[in-house]
Design a protein around this nucleic acid. Structure first.
Ligand SMILES: [Zn+2]
Length: 322
DNA sequence: CGAGTTTGACCGGCGC
DNA sequence: GCGCCGGTCAAACTCG
């Protein structure tokens, strides 16, 4: 019932826009004879080469990460199997910290409404034709990506270059923040899914779990119009505010993971699961970094080359596009 | 009017 | 077997 009052279109950061706006269709515009033009051409040439290289590296990294993830999954499974299994999540009890009231009575039970929705997934009767995607149950390609977002960003939107369709939202038990479920908009041809949820502690972090791989290019494509780049995704430095005219969401990969997690003293719960090797996270970050850098990096470099880095961005048409 | 979002119901796995 | 819980579906709703 709540109207979307607090949505507030503050996240109108348009990346590359005007897909059909080609000011320089040819590399030989032959404008005023300025030496900078030549330099720009050279840079553009090198840029394209670097882009190709980057792409290749990204693919390699993706493949490597996939293998690694599979291996790690097996390993974890094995570990879980062998371990006694006493390592549970934190006990339901907790002192002080704002924990969601677990036993808030369920409001309004089902009761009379016994309509019994015709929910048969296969109405024809002949179901289970085996066309249910690929089996491969042992394969579970999922990658976790950490994204830093703005504090006031209430929407769980992670800009990753693809377009997603939200299909669900749930509140999980050990996290007060809800979790959003997204599907790739190219479904069913592309069945990539992702889950986005705020970190339990640090609410400025979004944890996006990707499931599957896209079999298509992102809508942003590899091409990009020479425009500004509102997001600088250097995997090292926090992106400085661009226009500063508006608190645009400064997406930034969490690269140094030396989390300053302050373990709560006195909780006495067996954490157990915290013993993740550091290099694993390193790989995850590398993956995330390259994934996010791909469109962003190109945009940034192209913007720099084109010389028109920042200006009053007024687009805003595509809010969650990228 | 269509595409996308919201939101409660439904379903299956898992632990007790 | 029952209930919890994460994931998905789909009707209702909203927006352009
Ligand atoms: Zn896709």
């Amino acid at each position: 019932m709540e109207p979307s009052a607090w949505i507030d279109s503050s996240l109108s950061l348009a990346l590359n826009l005007n897909p059909h706006y080609h000011p320089h269709p040819h590399p030989h515009p032959a404008p005023p004879p300025k030496p900078q033009i030549k330099e720009a051409e050279e840079l553009a040439e090198e840029l394209s080469r670097v882009i190709g290289e980057n792409r290749k590296l990204t693919e390699m990294l993706a493949a490597m990460y996939e293998s690694y993830t599979a291996l790690q999954t097996q390993f974890e499974d094995l570990m879980r199997r062998t371990s006694a299994g006493s390592a549970k999540r934190k006990s339901p009890e907790s002192g002080g910290d704002g924990v969601q009231t677990d036993q808030s009575s369920s409001s309004s039970d089902d009761e009379s409404n016994v309509f019994k929705k015709p929910r048969e997934s296969c109405s024809g009767g002949n179901c289970g034709g085996g066309a249910v995607a690929a089996g491969l149950m042992s394969r579970k390609p999922s990658s976790r990506v950490l994204v830093r977002i703005d504090k006031s960003d209430t929407s769980l939107i992670v800009k990753d270059g693809y377009q997603w369709r939200k299909y669900g939202q749930k509140v999980t038990r050990d996290n007060p923040s809800p979790r959003a479920y997204f599907k790739c908009s190219f479904a069913p041809s592309c069945q990539v899914k992702k889950k986005v949820q705020r970190s339990a502690e640090d609410q400025t972090m979004l944890v996006a779990t990707y499931d599957g791989e896209h079999n298509h290019l992102p809508p942003s494509e590899t091409e990009l119009p020479p425009h500004r780049s509102p997001v600088t995704t250097t995997n090292s430095v926090a992106s400085s505010a661009i226009g500063s005219s508006k608190p645009t969401v400064t997406l930034d990969l969490i690269q140094p993971v030396e989390e300053a997690r302050l373990d709560r003293a006195g909780s006495g719960a067996a954490e157990g699961q915290d013993s993740r090797p550091v290099f694993q996270r390193f790989i995850v970050e590398q993956m995330a970094s390259s994934l996010t850098n791909d469109p962003g990096f190109k945009a940034a470099v192209a913007a720099v080359i084109s010389g028109r880095m920042m200006d009053g961005n007024k687009g805003g048409m595509l809010g969650k596009w990228l």
